[in-house]
Computed example of a mutant assay.
Amino acid sequence: MTAPQQPSPTDRSDADDIEQHACPKCDAQPGSPCRSRGGAVASAYHTRRFTTVPRLKKALRVPTPAGRNPGKPWRPGHTVPAAVDPDLPSADIRIGYARCSHLSQELDSQLDALSKHGIPRDKIFSEKISTRVRVRPQFEAALRTAREIKAHAPHCRVIFTVYEMKRLGRDAAELTALADHLTAHGLVLEMLAGPLPGIYDPTGAAPLLFAFFAAMAETERENIRESTLEGLDTAARKGKHGGRPPVITDDMLHTVLRRRANGESVEQIQPDLIIPTGKRKGRSPSVASVYRALAEHAKHEAYPEAVEQAHVDFAALQTGELPGPRTQPQTVR
C-alpha cells in the first residue's frame, strides 16, 4: 500500500517564513495568508511579501499551501513562531538617528551620545533638515535599514535609537504614527534623553505619555516659530533685514557708475572692486554681480519717473484731456 502523500516540507517552510511578515499589498497581518480583492484566500503570496524572505527573493511565484484553503473565504490566522537559528546570537541591534534643523548647528553631541551607547558609526544616520520637511532621506534610510535587519534576523530585537524625542519630529500626530509604525514592524523605539528616556513600551500608560509629550513638542515648535516671526517683523520695522550683505555696496556702485561715465567697460572696472565683508571678503565680485547691480540701479532710477508720468496722465484723465497720441479724434456719423 502506498503511503498518503504528505505536504511538501519546502512549501510548508516557505509559508511559515512568509507569514512572519505582514503583507504590504493586501494588509494581511503576520500569521495569515494573503487575500484576494474578492475577500478569498489568494492562490499565491503577493510578491512584495515573499521577497522579504531572503531565500525567496528571486522566486517568481510562491503558491499558497492547501492547508491555508486557497480560494475559500479569508479569515485571519495565528502568528507562526519564528524559527530560531542556533548559530546566530540573540542580541539587540541598534540603529541610530541624529538630526538638527539648520546647517549652522552641529550634530557632534548627538553622534557622540549614540556612539557611547554602543551604536557603531556605520549604523548611525544623520542629516541637517527641518522637521517641517516631510521627506527626510537619512531618516527614511534608517527606518528601511531597521526593517531589513528585522526581516533577516527576526529573533533579534532591533532598536531605533534617537537622542531625544524632538529629533524625530515636533508634530504630535506624526510622532504617534511613527511609534505605531515601529511597533507594527516589530521594532523598538529608544530615546537617550528628554522627558521619556529609555525604551518606549507600547503597553500600559506609555502611549498616553508619549502622545502628551509629543503634543508638548509640537507646542514648543509653534512657540519658536511665532517668536522668530515676531522678531523678524520687529527688525524689519526698524529697517534691519536679514540675509547676506550685498556684494556690490553703494560705494562700489558709485565707482562703477563714475568710471563707466568716463568710457570704461564693466570688465575693466571689475578687477579693481573689492568685497568688504562676508565669506568673499577681499576678493573681487563677478562681472555678473556688477551687471545685476547696474540693472537694479537702472530700475530704481526709472521708477520715480514712471510714477511722475502716471500722476500726469491721471490728472489729464480727470480733465478729459490725454496728452500726445492718446487723444483719439471722434468720428461723426
Rank of each mutant, 00 (worst) to 15 (best):
E230F: 09
R280I: 03
A316Y: 07
F314A: 15
E267I: 09
V290H: 08
A306N: 11
Q318K: 14
P304A: 05
H297T: 08
A298P: 00
P271I: 02
P276T: 02
A298G: 01
L229R: 15
T249S: 15
L273V: 04
A306I: 12
P271K: 11
D313T: 10
I269L: 04
H241N: 02
G243F: 03
T255C: 11
L273D: 02
D313I: 12
P285T: 07
P276Y: 00
L317V: 07
A316V: 00
A310R: 11
T234A: 14
R292M: 01
T228L: 08
R259P: 09
K299Q: 12
T255H: 13
E267S: 13
G231P: 12
V256N: 06
Y303R: 14
E230C: 05
E296C: 02
D313H: 15
A236R: 13
A288W: 06
S284Y: 05
S289E: 15
T234V: 08
E264L: 08
V290S: 09
V307D: 00
P304E: 07
V266Y: 08
E230I: 02
L257E: 14
Y303H: 14
E264N: 06
V307F: 01
E305N: 10
I269N: 09
L232R: 13
G282Q: 05
D272Y: 10
G243E: 03
A298H: 12
S227G: 10
V307I: 14
D313R: 15
S284F: 03
G320L: 00
S265F: 07
L232Y: 08
T277N: 14
E321L: 04
V247I: 13
P246F: 00
A298R: 14
G243L: 02
L273Q: 06
R280G: 05
S284Q: 08
T277K: 13
S265V: 01
A295K: 15
I275V: 02
L273S: 04
P246A: 00
A293T: 00
S286P: 04
G320Q: 04
R283V: 01
K238C: 14
Y291R: 12
Y303Q: 14
L294P: 04
E321A: 06
G278S: 02
D272V: 02
S286E: 11
P285Q: 08
R237P: 08
P276S: 03
P276N: 05
L294G: 01
S286G: 13
P323M: 05
G239A: 08
A298I: 00
E230M: 04
S227F: 10
S227H: 12
E305I: 08
P304F: 07
V287P: 06
L273G: 04
K279L: 05
A306R: 15
V312Q: 12
E305T: 11
Q268A: 12
Q309P: 00
T319D: 11
R283I: 00
R292I: 02
R283C: 06
R258Q: 13
I275R: 09
L294I: 00
H300C: 05
H297C: 12
R244C: 01
N262F: 07
D251L: 08
E264T: 03
Q270C: 03
K281A: 12
K279W: 07
E321G: 01
E301R: 15
A306H: 11
R244Q: 03
L273N: 05
M252A: 09
